[in-house]
Design a protein around this nucleic acid. Structure first.
Lengths: 255, 255
DNA sequence: GCCCTAACTTGATTTAGATCAAGGAAAAGG
DNA sequence: CCTTTTCCTTGATCTAAATCAAGTTAGGGC
């Protein structure tokens, strides 16, 4: 978000290899288990690239000659039917891995929702490195298993939750991330800027944007969330939000 | 499906280690890249186990001391909310992998839909083997990436498709599998027994069982499928079924 | 400072699928 | 063979969310 990139700046950034030792996502990304030798090998095939909010990173059907870690910002994966109906299938946050080794065609549209910085690895050499570097494969397996869990949790949201529960689920996921990021304690009120438009939320939730708007304002009216402007959200009681999401595992350990 | 197991037979089967060289799923399962040495190591920690149709393999929250390949039959993964709403999040077919290395608690209910045979590996020794056996991790990564793709495809079905499209999507997935299994050519009519009850289908599709019943009969009335009894399905024109599923990529390469 | 556009809200109406309610068929069990 | 239970179908009604239709707000460029 701090980098306002344009074509020229992008070229400049492309040639700048930031140091892995200072990398914010070093401990969570695909390289997190790698030793210094392995990092040096990765360093040879990597480059940084930034995208502006709203920019397309890749489209379904295109070739993609790199895979990447998200360093900064938020990207989305989505699928679109011929008649235009679209479903978001992934929210990619810092340390998430974009692209599939072993496949050259992209099968989802990848979009930058905020300004995004990627740490890109040329795909072919990355695939070769994977064969020699168990640490890389082991970590990628963990990341993929986590994403599979998240996708399955999302299937429950899409298949069985009401519009209100869907909104509460999305907000609680985003809130949880902010809380983790800032290392808040579970009872602190959480505050954050929504990184998604109403339309993007509707694409994630399988709703229309009108329904998203109505449900957000209903949650506000009921005191589940507070709204500052249209995008800034405060969650006074995370537990209440989880109850609204239908995720409440215990039914009242706080009350 | 050929094995009608009871407790006694199960015990008998448990001690029988079928040979990997005759295994039907050898070339697709988690062990598919393993050489003979690696297979021998796996053989030491494996056992077969069968479950009858309808039997529970594991419940959310339980410990599971094994991971397994599905050898035969169909198992389902599902999530249930406190109020009873349930969503199926996975259909496990022969060669699919059940369980997550590195986690001992089960997070989905696992059920045998037909009689099921599992090739089970004790979890702890399996995890140790993974560290020494890149072939195992590499294959498990591929399997997991495929499952993630399938889960994301399913998110589109759940979030954006109509009830009729959902049914057509489910039937086309099952039909495609049978076609692959029997190596039919793409234009052959496909025939198969539905391995799921109307209720199981509704859990997969995020619908009620009444809607499933109505839509199946509507597809039948419109000649998209033929029904023999309640469970046997014939697809005279796979292309038409795909159009009904909203998956038609080209709009008429056959016509 | 004003206009323009993208993002959002709010209201009225419609509709796909849920829910409620009976039955029917067919397998399982005595 | 008859009973029971499970699975499935079909109809009537209801409702949550979609759709259709105006507005309103607020940031960004000129």
């Amino acid at each position: 978000m701090q980098i306002k990139s344009n074509g020229l700046q992008m070229a400049a950034i492309k040639s700048t290899n930031l140091s892995c030792s200072e990398c914010q996502i070093r401990h969570r990304a695909v390289c997190s288990r790698c030793d210094d030798d392995e990092l040096r090998a990765l360093d040879k095939i990597k480059y940084y690239r930034t995208y502006q909010a709203g920019q397309t990173i890749a489209l379904t059907g295109q070739q993609m000659d790199f895979v990447a870690s998200v360093v900064n910002g938020i990207a989305t994966l989505s699928q679109t039917m011929e008649d235009g109906r679209t479903q978001m299938v992934g929210l990619m946050l810092p340390s998430d891995f974009v692209g599939r080794p072993g496949r050259d065609g992209v099968v989802y549209d990848v979009q930058a929702t905020t300004d995004v910085t990627l740490c890109c690895f040329y795909r072919k050499p990355f695939e070769e490195l994977m064969v020699q570097t168990p640490h890389l494969v082991q970590r990628l397996l963990q990341i993929t298993l986590d994403e599979l869990d998240a996708a399955r949790e999302w299937m429950l949201v899409l298949g069985r939750k009401t519009a209100r529960e869907k909104l509460a689920s999305l907000l609680s996921i985003i809130a949880r991330r902010y809380a983790t990021l800032r290392k808040l304690s579970p009872n602190d009120p959480i505050e954050f800027d929504l990184p998604l438009t109403r339309e993007a939320m509707s694409d994630y939730l399988g709703l229309t944007l009108e329904t998203v708007s109505r449900q957000i304002n209903a949650l506000k009216k009921d005191g589940v969330i507070e709204l500052v402007g249209k995008r800034h959200i405060r969650v006074p009681d995370m537990h209440l939000l989880l109850v609204e999401a239908g995720d409440d595992a215990d039914g009242g350990y706080l009350s």
